[in-house]
């Protein structure tokens, strides 16, 4: 199988700060990976990890500072027009369409940008409207559409010119669970399995990546941490259990995490608090031997609302590998100092 997307040593820096204090921040730092033709590949990382910057580089919206990107064997910088014809782009958010135009008129306009017109264009729009179940609303203005319907039109736009490669940047962000489910099924079954599209999906939903992707690249603070199949990630994790505690009244979380970390065979501890409820995760080979000690330590500070022992998910793998939760925002400054 040949390579559809080739990313090699890509660096993208941004100048941040004011006047004399300006400095370079690495949004993408020496990213390297390949995606084979027909593969559904995931880019998983927290907000601010560099996923969208990388997708924008691939979509030729950004020019990388270093490294090379090839789409279907051609360099995107020197063959940008060819590469743009091979790519269909979907981003998250509702505001990517002309709200004062109908769904059909939106597609007609974007079809023109890809050189489609006349019967060919009309047949393609008809097919996509049918495929995405939008025929009944195709002549209504976008402003009357629900978020999910708008995202369907965005998807139809990306498919207008029948591209070989699809770049889906957080396509289910902000959608209700029903539409998210529909979109996931559509991506997996219709686009990937039936139409054999090469898909790069970025997400910070680990269950989405786990369910859809054949291989996943973990990206954190601009760096590609690892590229494996979901199965390989879980298999290669040295621990096998995750002990989760839901507590309230925790006064000194950092101190508590230190104490928990010192318990026998604990590999990693993380915590996050929402509305005075603290969720603590302890990653370790077996939870049962430290259960009573853990309860005792937590009880000294607060009240235990619930305890759960689970098998590791991709999120646990991510935490293990990067020390960062997927729900965290890592958009804080990353100065351009190399390791």
């Amino acid at each position: 199988m040949s390579v559809a997307i080739e990313v090699k040593d890509v660096v993208k820096k941004f100048r941040r700060g004011r006047r004399l204090k300006k400095r370079d921040i690495f949004a993408v730092d020496k990213a390297t990976f390949d995606i084979e033709e027909g593969e559904l590949f995931g880019l998983l990382g927290p907000n601010g990890a560099g996923k969208t910057t990388l997708v924008r580089c691939l979509a030729t919206l950004l020019i990388q500072d270093e490294g090379t990107i090839k789409i279907m064997g051609k360099d995107i910088y020197s063959n940008s027009l060819y590469c743009r014809r091979q790519i269909g782009l979907v981003t998250s958010g509702e505001r990517t369409l002309y709200w004062k135009l109908s769904g059909r008129d939106n597609l007609k306009f974007f079809a023109a940008l890809y050189g489609l017109d006349g019967k060919e264009r009309d047949m393609r729009i008809e097919y996509l409207m049918e495929l995405l179940d939008l025929k009944d609303v195709q002549n209504e203005r976008i402003e009357k559409y629900s978020s999910g319907m708008k995202q369907k039109i965005s998807l139809a736009r990306a498919l207008l010119h029948d591209p070989k490669v699809l770049l889906l940047d957080e396509p289910t962000l902000g959608l209700d669970p029903q539409f998210s489910r529909f979109l996931r099924n559509f991506i997996k079954n219709s686009l990937n399995k039936e139409q054999k599209k090469t898909i790069l999906l970025t997400t910070h939903y680990m269950d989405e990546a786990d369910e859809l992707c054949e291989r996943i690249a973990f990206i954190n603070r601009g760096k590609i941490v690892d590229v494996k199949t979901p199965y390989e990630y879980k298999r290669d994790l040295p621990h096998t259990e995750v002990l989760e505690l839901r507590c309230s009244g925790i006064q000194n979380c950092d101190e508590l995490l230190k104490q928990l970390q010192s318990l026998n065979s604990v590999e990693k501890t993380t915590a996050n608090s929402v509305d005075h409820v603290t969720n603590i995760k302890i990653i370790l080979p077996r939870a049962e031997p430290i259960l009573s000690d853990t309860i005792e330590l937590v009880r000294k500070q607060g009240k235990i609302l619930g305890i759960n022992v689970e098998q590791p998910t991709l999120e646990d793998v991510f935490i293990y590998v990067t020390g960062t939760r997927l729900s965290e925002d890592t958009a804080e400054e990353r100065p351009a100092t190399k390791d």
Binding site: R56, L61, T96
Partner: peptide
């Protein structure tokens, strides 16, 4: 503002034509 510029720039059309 409409969020459509990226899709114009990412298309194979020269923005000057638009």
């Amino acid at each position: 503002y409409w969020g459509t510029l990226e899709y114009i720039i990412a298309s194979p059309t020269n923005p000057v034509v638009v």
